[in-house]
Amino acid sequence: MAKPKVAFYWCSSCGGCEEAVVDLAEGILQVVEAVDIVFWPVALDFKRRDVEAMPDGAIDVCFINGAIRMSEQEAMANLLRRKSKLVIAYGSCAWMGGIPGLANLTSKKAIFDYVYHQAPTISNGSAVEPLPRTDVPEGELELPEFYEKVKTLDQSIEVDYYLPGCPPTPKITLEAVEAILKGALPEKGSVLAGDRALCHECKANASKPEKLLIKEFKRIQEVIPDLSKCLLAQGLLCLGPVTRGGCEARCLKAGMPCTGCFGPLEKVHDYGAKALSALASIVDSRDEAELARIFDAIPDPAGTFYRYSLPASLLGGRRQVTSDK
């Protein structure tokens, strides 16, 4: 039997997901052994035309990481979708928009204003901005279009499975590859990680007090936490209760509270809203001034609660107020 053909592609991402594949360490050898990599721009010299030349459905599995920020990424996603039997959204950006998705708190115009005009390192005397089409004497130049909003991968193309994480851990990556090779994949649309929130696999969960109530939020630089005890109970803003498990609580073992990269559980419709309502519930005060003081200790609530999931949220981002009515 021929080895399955596998492709990797990155859209709007930091490259960490690519690193994560390499990070499989000796595990990568098993993967390379078992599959035939037909496309992986970051590591191997294939071109877009190589993909275009393939018959539709020629790729067995395509792992796409990163969100959709520009037209070129969407075009590549569409192309790969056509050529692939299975598309897997790899990592939080592809699944939920991820860190690049926080750009949805602002607008394309505001981003361009800063990046091309205001940034202290910019000297843009003729105030040029990139345009999708520019006429020059030699002819028309084309650039990818920068979208108004960041999209998740499944807001552009149909996605078969999701691997969460920023980046996905070696364990869930290998398990996913194994499941694909064995043909033991769950229902289409599944997230290939734990079925319960992180607390369930966190060693410190047993240490929780009888009533989990919080009087104060602390930031990680302010305390040296007791790692044998629940970080949330110690006042660190750990999103473990809201976040899908499967990551083996790796951050927590290193003293970092969970920031939520494994995203929401299946029954949750909006990660940030759920996180907010859960945490607001356990804040132990009925005094408005005290409540305001407690919540002021969270410096960037939108960035904290929607760090990985803003484009996938019910609102999708900040709604632009149009003043020209």
Binding site: C199, H200, L212, P241, G245, A278
Partner: peptide, 27 residues
């Protein structure tokens, strides 16, 4: 739904009627 519950125990402090207990065996 005990198939989904992670045992995070946030609900336990919330219940005004002490109707929720932590099952430490199943977590």
């Amino acid at each position: 739904d005990q198939e989904i519950c992670s045992g995070c125990q946030i609900c336990i402090a919330m219940c005004p009627y002490t109707a929720i207990q932590f099952d430490s065996e199943k977590s």
